[in-house]
Amino acid sequence: MTTAAYPPTSKKIANAVMLSITGICAFLVVAVLLFILGYLVVNGAKSLNWAFFTKLPAPVGEIGGGLANAIVGSGKMLLIAAALGVPVGLLGGVHLAEFSGSAFASIVRYTTDLLNGVPSIVMGIFVYTLVVVPMHHFSTLAGGIALGIMMIPIALRSTEEFLRGVPQALREGAMSLGASKTQTILTVIIPAALPGIITGIMLNLARVAGETAPLLFTAFSNQYWSPGFDQPSASLPVVIFNYAISPYEDWHRQAWAGGFVLLTAVLLINIVARLILSRRTSLPR
């Protein structure tokens, strides 16, 4: 008695075809990234010059100038964002990982994930009603607060994850030496998780650095320097947007240069942070 060979040829063909299709899908997605990078490098690098980093925008119609005020504005907003988002997220993460019961933790975690999913434009409106309306004008501060609020959910979740990745034995070791819970957290657990927490914060900053929508009606924009923190301020993403939709050729050039600088910064931080994370196999991702 002979048995038919299994799998039959039709199945083998289906196998080869479907497997190839999935491979094409994967390379298609990666190709899109390379395509975007290629365009930005080609168009951005040729539009980039020293004036871009050092000069104010030229008046409408004039060629030249730079986006120095937008770069500084973005930096100031990120500073405020980090000052607001990192402590709240960090402490909240410590609470979930070290203090709270599991029911409370899952409620907060769920809320955090939902808050993280709120569209950034809605966040912009929220901060507009929360900060801009009482202050009666747009400001660097409002922009920074918008970005800071957007940082909290991810800061909290990543801190919690990294703290949970610290081996239980370290906690028990510290406790057995008579350390209080606070001492254990401050001197043993956080130091052990610190590299992860810091890379998490770097990724978080890189993410909000590219946010445009929350800044449109919080920081607004500004043709000039924005002294202090209570004036409307330019920021790199908003200026890229404004310039890209403008009718001026030279502004398009600046938009490409701005896009190139922004993308390079964001991707470099991402690459460094992810390499550091993948190296530390003892910690969760």
């Binding site: 997605v29 975007i36 993410r207 590219g210 993403p237 922004l262 993308l263 964001v266 991707l267």
Partner: peptide
């Protein structure tokens, strides 16, 4: 990395 590209880009 593609996921990290800002929306304005």
């Amino acid at each position: 990395l593609l996921a990290a590209v800002p929306s304005v880009i």
